[in-house]
């Protein structure tokens, strides 16, 4: 069992406190929804978890081992986000080959199948992709690398309704074939409401909610009645 622990993370940019004493635990094989408004600190938190940036205080651990500068632990996570960390001049095939080299394995068959479904040409250059296909390619990578924690930051950005549908279905297929932990950060709550098993809500850098969805739903009804969802609850 792998457990990802975030303990007492605080981070500020200049005078702005982006995260304030955030502590969370992510358990194996669950699908977490990381929800909150723009600027709530979701992306910053995911960047800190994956050691892309450093927290001011606090630490991130996998199985009680700090992930900072730790290949063995960092290699268990993959963060797909809006920022592009791939060379623009490389073809998608090259990026896949390099990714495979680093991780030691890669689900080629699945990646090829997805590329075909989404009609993504793997011989095109990364820098030439449209916003939608840029997201699709990075999602294909995220679903094909052999990691235990897949972190998706606004995964469906720039995808049309049809592609979004396809993505969620493929996510479930991939999850069923290889159960692992997903952390999906999004503001499109309705789309993931039934997909996630646990919900975390960040608001102004603080954890507002961290519970299984069922419990949240139970509370929601006693508070605001039917026809409402997590959104209504979180809006308070």
């Amino acid at each position: 069992m792998s457990v990802l622990e975030v303990s007492h993370i605080s981070k500020s940019f200049g005078s702005k406190n982006v995260l304030q004493d955030v502590s969370l635990t992510f358990e194996e094989n669950k699908i977490y929804g990381l929800l909150g408004r723009n600027g709530a600190g979701k992306s910053t938190l995911l960047n800190i978890i994956t050691n892309r940036i450093f927290p001011d205080t606090g630490e991130v651990k996998i199985d009680s081992e700090n992930v900072n500068d730790n290949d063995a632990k960092l290699g268990l996570m993959f963060l797909m986000s809006e920022v592009n960390l791939y060379p623009n001049g490389s073809t998608l095939n090259q990026i896949i080959a390099d990714t495979e080299l680093i991780y030691g394995s890669f689900d080629y068959a699945f990646a090829k199948k997805l590329a075909q479904k989404f009609e993504l040409d793997l011989t095109s250059k990364f820098g030439k992709l449209s916003t939608g296909y840029n997201s699709i390619f990075k999602l294909i990578l995220a679903l094909s690398v052999p990691v235990k924690f897949v972190l998706l930051d606004e995964p469906v950005l720039g995808l049309d309704a049809n592609h979004r549908e396809m993505f969620y279905s493929e996510l479930i297929q991939s999850y069923t074939d290889h159960p692992r932990t997903f952390i999906i950060s999004t503001h499109l709550i309705e789309e993931v409401a039934n997909l996630i098993s646990d919900v975390i809500v960040l608001d102004e850098g603080r954890t507002m909610l961290d519970q299984p969805v069922e419990e949240v739903l139970a509370k929601t009804h006693s508070v605001v009645g039917p026809e409402t969802d997590v959104t209504a609850y979180t809006k308070g």
């Binding site: 969620y168 279905s169 479930i172 297929q173 993931v192 039934n194 997909l195």
Partner: peptide, 15 residues
């Protein structure tokens, strides 16, 4: 199957 229902309606397979 669980997966089919899950994929069709985007519901967590465990649910």
């Amino acid at each position: 199957s669980t997966t089919e229902i899950s994929k069709e309606f985007h519901i967590n397979p465990a649910t």
